[in-house]
Design a protein around this nucleic acid. Sequence first.
DNA 1: GAAATTTACTGAACCGGATAAGTTGGAGAG
DNA 2: CTCTCCAACTTATCCGGTTCAGTAAATTTC
Lengths: 338, 338
Amino acid sequence: MKRPTIADIARRAGVSKGAVSYALNGQPGVSEATRQRIVAIAQEIGFNPNSAARALSGASARAVGLTLCRPARILSIEPFFMGLISGFEAELAARSYALTLQVVATPEQEIEVYRRWWGERRIDGVIVTDLREDDQRIPVLHQLQLPAVVIGGPGDTGRIAQVWSDDAGAITETVRYLVALGHRRIARVGGLPDLLHTQTRTRAFNDICTALGLNEAVTMPSDYTGEEGGRATRRLLIGADRPTAVIYDNDVMAVAGLAVAQEMGLAVPGDLSIVAWDDSPLCSLVHPPLTALSRDIAEYGAHAARELLAAIDGKPVGNVEAGTAHLTPRGSTAPPRA
Amino acid sequence: MKRPTIADIARRAGVSKGAVSYALNGQPGVSEATRQRIVAIAQEIGFNPNSAARALSGASARAVGLTLCRPARILSIEPFFMGLISGFEAELAARSYALTLQVVATPEQEIEVYRRWWGERRIDGVIVTDLREDDQRIPVLHQLQLPAVVIGGPGDTGRIAQVWSDDAGAITETVRYLVALGHRRIARVGGLPDLLHTQTRTRAFNDICTALGLNEAVTMPSDYTGEEGGRATRRLLIGADRPTAVIYDNDVMAVAGLAVAQEMGLAVPGDLSIVAWDDSPLCSLVHPPLTALSRDIAEYGAHAARELLAAIDGKPVGNVEAGTAHLTPRGSTAPPRA
DNA sequence: GAAATTTACTGAACCGGATAAGTTGGAGAG
DNA sequence: CTCTCCAACTTATCCGGTTCAGTAAATTTC
C-alpha cells in the first residue's frame, strides 16, 4: 500500500503542492472553497503528513522525549513513572505529539541521549525528571537550546520551565498530624539522597520536628526499592527507642515497611503508624490500607506536558506549582499505644 | 548552536557529501584512509545524522512504536508493562532505535494510531500486545505491511512474528503442585476474558482440573485491577464450599486477594493458599510473601524487540517461545488445614 | 603498452513537505 | 477606462540525508 502524499492530493484536487500545504495547515493563500475540497480529499484518502518531511523542512518533529533513569526492577514496580507517562500522553495525544522513551542507567547517559536526540532532530523538547543539585543536564540543555520542562524541583534551572509540588508543605502537614495523634518519635525512610526533592523533604522534616520539639528526626536514606525500604525499617525498629511512626518517600517502601513490621510482630497501627508518600492503588490493597500523601500524578504529568508544549511554541517559561500532596488517612495511622 | 551536517563534514574533509555518507554507513566507495578521516571528523564535531533526513530518503526511521491499551490506574501499578518496556529498551538502545509510546483507550484507537504512524512514516514497526481472538489489528498491519511482533499468543497472526510463553504448561504445573499439597478445591481469578492468553490459561486450567478429577474449576473473570481482584476473591470465599487455593492472573490481584483473606479472618496459607502469576518485587514485599509464577519479563520484551528488528530487516518471521513461567514457592502456599 | 577493469570518488536527483518569491485574474479606486 | 492592489494561486527552492550515474586515475590483463 502506497502512502498518500500531498502530491497525490494536489493531483486529485487539480491544484499545486503548495496550495495543498497551505490548505492543510490553515495558512492563508487558498480560498475557503478550495481548502474544504482539499481537506475532504485528504480525509478521504487517509492522508497523514510524513513526519520526516515535515521535520526536515523546518517544522517541528512533533515529538518529545523522556528518559527514565532507574534500574528495571524499580521502574517495573514504582507506579510514579507510569502515572506520569499517562498524564503526559493525555496532553500530548490531544496535540498529536509523540512521546519517545529511553531507559538509561546514569545521568551521564541521559546527557548523551539528549545530545543525540538533538543532533538527530528527533524531538522538539524533553521532560527532565529527578532534578539534582548542580544538575549537569541543565547547562547542556541551555547550550543545545533544547526546550525542556523540569520535574522534581523547585531548583535553579535558569531559563527552563519547571513543574513542582510543595513537598515541604505536605511533609509538615503530615508531621503535625502524627504529633496531633500523640506521636513523639517519628522517623522517615527517604528516597535517593541526591535528588533535590528528597533534600527538600528532608530539610522540611528536620525543620518541623525541631519546631515541634521532637529531637529525634531520623531520616534513613534509601533508593525507593522495597528491599532497601524494608531493610531501613528493620534498622529503625531494632533500636531501643524505636519510632512509633514512619513516613516513607514512596509507596513501595511503605508496603515493604508494613511487611517488616508484621514480620517483627508489631501491630500496625497499634505499635507503629505508617504513612506512604504518593498514593497508588497499592496503598489500598494491603492490609491495613496505608495512610498516604495523595497527589494526582497524571495531572502533574499533564501540567508538565503543557509547560513543555508552551516552551516549544516559544512562550515564556513557567514555574508552575502543581497541586500539593494531601494526607489521605487510612488504617495505618492511629495514636500510639501508651 | 548549529547542528553539524554531512555537508560540514564534507567541507572539512575536502570530499563530497556522497563520500561522507558512504564512509559513515560502511558502504563501499571510499578508501579506508578517507573513511577513517571522515569518521574522525564526525566524532570530533559530534555529528548525529538527522533522523528526519534519513527517514525521508528512504532509509528507516530508526524507531518502533508501542501502544498501551489500559486505563491509567492499571498501567501505573501493573508491573508487567514497565518490565516489558525495560526489556525492549535494552535491545533497541543497543541498535540505537528509539521507542515511541502511545497510551490509548480502545483497540480501535490502537488501529488509528498504527495507521497514523504508518502514514507519518514515524516508525519502522510496532509491538502488539494483548492479542485477542479475531484481532482486528492483525489485518490492518498486513494491509499496511507494517513490520510487527505480537505478544500474548500464540494465535493466528499470519505473516507476523510472535513471541509467547507456554502459559498452559505453567498453569498445569501449578495445579499439579497445589493438588500434590493436598488441595482439591482450586479456583482462579482470571485476567481480561477477551485476551487470547487469558483464554489459553482458562482452557488449560479446566483441562488439568478435569484430568485430575477436580470438578469445581471455577474461573472468576476480572480486569487486572486490585479492586476487581479483591471483589472476585470475596465472592469466591463467601461460598459454602470455598476454595482452599486461588490462582491469580496477575500479582496486583493476588495482593488484593491476600488483603481480602486477611480482612475476612482467613489465615494465609493455613486457610487459603495463594499463587500469583507474574512475579514482581510486589510479591516478596507483602506478608506472607506470595508464591508466584516467575518469568523474566524484561527478557520476554528483549525477545520481542529482537524479533521485531529482524522483521524490519526483512528476515523471515519467527514464532519464538520465550521461557515458560516457573513456580517460585514462597510463604503463601501450604497444605490445606484438615 | 594499449585495452579492460576496478577503485575512489563527484555531481545530481530524490524523498515529501514548508515556504518565499513570482504570476495571474478580477474587483475597486480614481 | 486604466491603474493599483489583493486574493488565489503556481513555481521553485530548501531541509539533510541516500543513492545512482558518471568520471578520472590507478591497476590489472593479455
